[in-house]
Write a protein that binds this DNA or RNA. Sequence first.
DNA 1: TATACATGGACCTAAAATGTCCCGCTATGA
DNA 2: TCATAGCGGGACATTTTAGGTCCATGTATA
Lengths: 339, 339
Amino acid sequence: MQSLIEAQKKLLPDLLDVMQKRYRILQYIRLMQPIGRRVLSNSLGISERVLRSEVQFLKEQNLLIMSSAGMSVTSEGNELLHILEDVMREVLGLKDLEKKLKHTLHIEDVIVVAGDSDLSPWVKKEMGRACVACMKERLTDKNIVAVTGGTTLAAVAEMMTPDSKQSDVLFVPARGGLGEDVKNQANTICAKMAEKTMGNYRLLHVPDHLSNEAYQSLIEEPTVKEVLQLIKSSSMVIHGIGDAITMAERRKTPEEDMEKIKARYAVAEAFGYYFNQEGEVVHKVKTVGIQLEDLEHVQHVIAVAGGASKAKAIKAYMKQAPHSILITDEGAARALIRE
Amino acid sequence: MQSLIEAQKKLLPDLLDVMQKRYRILQYIRLMQPIGRRVLSNSLGISERVLRSEVQFLKEQNLLIMSSAGMSVTSEGNELLHILEDVMREVLGLKDLEKKLKHTLHIEDVIVVAGDSDLSPWVKKEMGRACVACMKERLTDKNIVAVTGGTTLAAVAEMMTPDSKQSDVLFVPARGGLGEDVKNQANTICAKMAEKTMGNYRLLHVPDHLSNEAYQSLIEEPTVKEVLQLIKSSSMVIHGIGDAITMAERRKTPEEDMEKIKARYAVAEAFGYYFNQEGEVVHKVKTVGIQLEDLEHVQHVIAVAGGASKAKAIKAYMKQAPHSILITDEGAARALIRE
DNA sequence: TATACATGGACCTAAAATGTCCCGCTATGA
DNA sequence: TCATAGCGGGACATTTTAGGTCCATGTATA
């Protein structure tokens, strides 16, 4: 199979381009369906006319259907996308990127999806899809999955689908309030994931800034305590990685912490922890839930982050998480390798 | 892999056609290099202009070079052809034919090459190439290879190349004179093979029609006797299969034998043996060398024959040679399966 | 040295791809 | 209920490409 594609690259590179184009179109339609020509052509950067021809073709192949609401992928089209997924990764050179990333970042497993989420927001969804596939591969019988917040994780949640095998999954937020926007909060995402997978969830209601005493009494509450217990025993953690300054600014970080973060050259953020270039923790938001050292005992840790702008953060964070699975995009991957 | 190709076909219905076209062009060039556009386009049945475009493309891909003498395949092109060989067999459905042939002929191993040697003479060369590859796979340390005559075997000889591993091969003619044309005689072919592989050879000089007494004294000759000894101990036999009547006519078969061959409904010929539809010997040319019953003790027996017109003969011969390896072409294979 | 065969340039035509503009339909939300 | 944004699709001019045809020029070889 490898050799077939290699050979095809030599013998018909022109056709592979066409294949790639059609694949992208179909893939994007799946992501955004139902969608119309105009929006689609804009998003893909293809002139509307050529898109129209391609779409016409794909329709004749029964890969998509058109309705007054827009175009959607048929089940046949879905199947095709699935079969070709691996091939296209090869064709697009993503496999190659993965190999290089494993080497430069010294990590064991990485998945790179096409595109750059800085440039095209839908790439986040593709990372989401990849993450979901990755999760499904690894989820066994009964599982507790802890998730963090962030726009990337929101994309993951959006792409979640019920697992055909069994849906005995319990979602919990990994850590208490970190000061995010509501729709990007761990709690929200946690609930959404459970809803999409028809699984269960528990939430952790911990106000952002609390006095120490209030804290202590809160975590003694039975309901809170139970959730904390679940979190500690989770078998999978899914989290995003952010740029330190951006994250600090987005959250209502107190002035003094902000100073600290900047003074210590934090570049990456994850779980409410801030890391410098070397992957060392320079600051942490005080809240309950999973702590960095707990990760070691979690079976599967999946980090999801993409976009060239996050390359530095990813690099820093990954320095201290060699056993995490990284799901990223082409933009970040290329930036990482360039360095 | 099949599903991959199916999927590609959905997205790019003419992918395989183009791939096949380019492959054929490259393959043919390798066969005939150096070769010019006119001859090439004629042989392949492609208009000269489209051939020109394709060739231009292949040149840009560094798969072939053009010189004033004509076009030749580069080493990169050769490599590609090699990689693609297996893939194309699959794509062209040859693997499928092989499977069916194994079943209908009850034989263990068969290789089918594309084309029909009745229609395009160069297909014989492809069979030759396949036969050579097959031989190389099976030849071990020191070997004695016995070969027969015929145009097909001549093609095999032509495609022979020195073996990189070792060339400690001794070629001998399988049987004495059978009345063939000089350039298709076993002796000639035997010598040619040795020359091409940089191996050694021994010849067997036995006049065609000899009195019994002369025969007896001849085979007592030390030089003849030695060669006969070698023949009997050969580890590989390569032979063609012919249509009985055609072969009988080509050789200066005496009137009475001719009658016999026809009266007994001979359809196949190999080694100077004539077989009827059931694979029973109905006549044999009297000469020295390997006898049919000796084949059982030979490690590798390879039969090479192609062209739809030979289907009947192949079928008949194979009935009594289930352990032979058959190398044939698409034309013969399809005819065989049709029956 | 003539000949045959090689490539490569030039130009024309047919056909396919693409750009442009517009129309009628329908789902949606005020 | 109705306005409207967004949908697919028709029509046609224009550009680009593929392919047909012919010929010039160079170079081995008999």
